[in-house]
C-alpha cells in the first residue's frame, strides 16, 4: 500500500531558457520603460526658471514646469527696482489664459484686481516677491506670461506648465 520511495517525487531538471511570446516582446519593454523613465524623473515635478530685465525692472520667475493633476505648486515672481528712485507702484500681471487653467489660485500679496498684484513703494535695488499657489485642475500644457510694469517699462516672462493627468 505505502510507497517505498523515501522522498516525494521531484520535478525533472529543464534548461531555464526564457522565451517570450510576440505580445510579450512588445508589451514588456513598454511595461519596464514606465518605471525606468519615472526613475529618471520624466513623470515627476520639475521647475522652470526665467529671467528678464527691462529698463528699471528686473524680473525673475520660478514656475512649475511639470507637475501632476490635483497637486499644489507655487509660482514665485521676484521683482526688483533697478532705478535710483522709489517706485510708487510696480504692477505684476498674470496671463488670464494661464492662471484660469488652475484652481484654488492664491496670491501673496493679494491680487487687487483679476490676476494683478500691485507692489507699492519699492525702494531702489529692493526686491519684492509675489507668490501664487496653483492647484492643477486641468491637465495638459498651459502657456502664458507674467508682465511686470513700472511706468513705461514692462518686462515679460513666458511660462509653460504641463500638468500630468
Amino acid at each position: 500500500m505505502a510507497s517505498p520511495n523515501p522522498s516525494p517525487p521531484r520535478a525533472p531538471s529543464i534548461e531555464p531558457k526564457i522565451e517570450l511570446t510576440r505580445k510579450q516582446r512588445i508589451g514588456i519593454p513598454i511595461l519596464l520603460a514606465v518605471p525606468i523613465l519615472a526613475l529618471f524623473g520624466l513623470f515627476g515635478e520639475t521647475r522652470g526658471q526665467a529671467h528678464t530685465t527691462s529698463g528699471s525692472i528686473d524680473v525673475e520667475v520660478s514656475y512649475p514646469a511639470r507637475f501632476r493633476y490635483r497637486q499644489v505648486q507655487s509660482l514665485h515672481v521676484s521683482v526688483r527696482n533697478l532705478s535710483t528712485t522709489v517706485a510708487d507702484t510696480m504692477r505684476v500681471s498674470f496671463d488670464t489664459a494661464y492662471i484660469s487653467r488652475f484652481s484654488s489660485v492664491r496670491f501673496d500679496p493679494a491680487a487687487k484686481s483679476a490676476y494683478t498684484v500691485d507692489l507699492t513703494d519699492v525702494k531702489p535695488s529692493e526686491s519684492r516677491l509675489v507668490s501664487v499657489e496653483l492647484w492643477g485642475q486641468d491637465y495638459g500644457s498651459h502657456r502664458g506670461t507674467v508682465v511686470a510694469r513700472h511706468g513705461t517699462d514692462s518686462a515679460i516672462v513666458h511660462l509653460s506648465t504641463f500638468v500630468f493627468p
Partner: peptide
C-alpha cells in the same frame, strides 16, 4: 497623489517587479 500618472507608474512598477522576479526565479 491621486493622479492617473502616479497610479500608472505604481502599477507598472509592480508589474515589472513581478515579471523580473518571475524571470529570475525561473532562470
Amino acid at each position: 497623489d491621486y493622479s492617473m500618472t502616479n497610479s500608472v507608474v505604481a502599477a507598472t512598477t509592480l508589474f515589472s517587479i513581478v515579471f523580473l522576479t518571475s524571470i529570475a526565479s525561473f532562470r
